[in-house]
């Protein structure tokens, strides 16, 4: 004999589901309607912690230098001295070429771009995205779309979000982001795709003239470097090859950036 249930069993999880959905919707609306305000609050909360971490915790990672052998340090010191002499000579050549470049630009009527310096407050691996938080905002004359460099000629990204005292820089190497670039040696214009971590890739036909070490430049007269080729992946069964490009230098060790 069947006994029908007079009352339905209580769903204990209904309250939890409603709470999860309600809180997620409220936070989603907050992000959608007030992204700048929330970024100002979040940055304000994070700034003291970043300062303390940079000044107190990071020096502990350098303790391993005290454990190096004296002989190793002497060898490294001599090697770095030789490199410094070579770099100083190259710097003199660079200064001469740079001055000539500026004079040519002046004759052509092009103005020199002024670069504002900004300190990096937070960068990967703290950030899960390829973004930097810098300490220059709208009150310092920074606008969305301003280009960002790590040196005079190496461009890394653009400003995508601005608050009164901070800005968010999105690197061109953000995963999935496409960017036009010019091969410096041949002048070919191609579209490279970000892979994250200051890396790009592009798939081209096998006979395309791109070699290891070629530089990719940001389109424009100023010829800023986007990256250099560090690996070419060819497959005998495919008619394409994959070019891997990386931003020169170590972007994630920089402490300052330059804003145009």
């Amino acid at each position: 004999m069947n006994y029908p249930l007079k009352s339905k069993p209580k769903n204990e999880n209904r309250g939890k589901v409603i709470a999860i959905i309600t809180i997620t919707l409220i936070l989603f609306l907050g992000l959608f309607l007030m992204p700048n305000y929330l970024r100002v609050v979040a940055t304000g909360v994070s700034l003291p912690i970043w300062s303390v971490t940079d000044q107190v915790v990071n020096p502990f990672f350098k303790i391993k230098n005290f454990l190096s052998f004296k002989g190793t340090l002497i060898k490294e010191n001599l090697k770095l001295q030789d490199e410094t002499v070579t770099l100083k000579l190259r710097q003199m050549d660079y200064d001469v070429l740079s001055k000539e470049n500026q004079e040519i630009k002046t004759v052509l009527g092009r103005k020199n771009s002024i670069h504002r310096v900004a300190g990096i407050l937070s960068k990967p691996p703290r950030s899960p995205f390829d973004t930097f938080v810098i300490d220059a905002g709208s009150s310092e004359g920074v606008f969305i779309g301003n280009k960002v460099y790590i040196s005079e000629n190496i461009i890394i990204g653009t400003i995508t979000n601005v608050t009164p005292h901070t800005s968010l820089v999105q690197l061109f190497s953000t995963g999935g982001l496409k960017q036009d670039a010019v091969v410096s040696r041949t002048g070919t214009m191609l579209t490279i795709t970000g892979r994250g971590g200051a890396n790009f890739e592009i798939e081209v036909p096998k006979d395309t003239d791109i070699l290891w070490g070629d530089s990719f430049l940001y389109p424009g007269l100023n010829s800023s470097i986007l990256g250099n080729v560090y690996y070419i992946d060819t497959n005998s069964q495919s008619s394409f090859k994959t070019i891997y490009i990386r931003i020169p230098g170590n972007v994630f060790d920089s402490k300052v950036v330059y804003i145009e």
Partner: peptide, 26 residues
């Protein structure tokens, strides 16, 4: 029921997200 994890995902988005990843953490 660690509901605080949703707040931390939202916090990451508020601090770092831009472009196509604006709501990824949440």
């Amino acid at each position: 029921f660690y509901i605080e994890v949703i707040f931390f995902g939202f916090f990451y988005d508020a601090l770092y997200a831009t472009g196509n990843f604006r709501y990824f953490g949440l």
